[in-house]
C-alpha cells in the first residue's frame, strides 16, 4: 500500500529560512535507509506558509488569501510517499525518523486510496 507521511509544521518550521545543511544531511541518511529498503517513492519539503496562498470555495465564489496561516500544527512542512506492506510498517519506519523539528513535533501517516479499495 501507498501512504503519505506528513511532517506537520511547527512555529520553528514556519519561521525558518532555508533548511540547515546538517539537518538536510541527517534527513538524507534516513532517506537512504528508506531507499535501500525499497520503501521511498518520493519526498519533498515545503516552504513556510508565508509563501503560500489559499483559495476558499463557497458556491461559485472563490476567495484568495495570502499566507502565513495560523494554527501551525494544522499546516504541512513536508511529506514522503512510501510503499509499505501495511500501516504497522509505516509506523515502524516513522519511529526510526529523527525528530524533524527542534521542538516537539508530529508526523501523520495517511493511506492513499488504491485501485483495490474500489473493487
Amino acid at each position: 500500500m501507498r501512504v503519505m507521511v506528513i511532517v506537520k509544521a511547527t512555529q520553528d518550521s514556519e519561521n525558518m529560512g532555508k533548511p540547515k545543511a546538517a539537518d538536510l544531511a541527517e534527513m538524507g541518511r534516513f532517506n537512504d535507509e528508506l531507499r535501500k529498503a525499497g520503501v521511498l517513492l518520493t519526498a519533498d519539503g515545503l516552504k513556510p506558509s508565508s509563501t503560500g496562498k489559499r483559495v476558499a470555495f463557497d458556491g461559485a465564489k472563490r476567495t484568495v488569501t495570502d499566507g502565513p496561516f495560523a494554527e501551525s500544527r494544522e499546516l504541512v512542512a513536508g511529506f514522503w510517499i512510501w510503499e509499505v506492506k501495511d500501516m504497522a510498517e509505516a509506523v515502524e519506519w516513522v519511529k526510526r525518523c529523527l525528530n524533524p523539528m527542534p521542538g516537539p513535533s508530529e508526523i501523520e501517516i495517511r493511506p492513499i486510496w488504491e485501485m483495490s479499495d474500489f473493487a
Binding site: 537512504d32 531507499r35 535501500k36 529498503a37 525499497g38 521511498l40 510503499e83 483495490s116
Partner: peptide
C-alpha cells in the same frame, strides 16, 4: 496480479539502492 508487480518493483528499488 498487481501484488507481484509491487514486490518486483520493491526488489528493483532495493537492488538499485544497494
Amino acid at each position: 496480479r498487481a501484488d507481484l508487480c509491487t514486490e518486483a518493483q520493491r526488489l528493483g528499488r532495493i537492488l538499485t539502492g544497494i
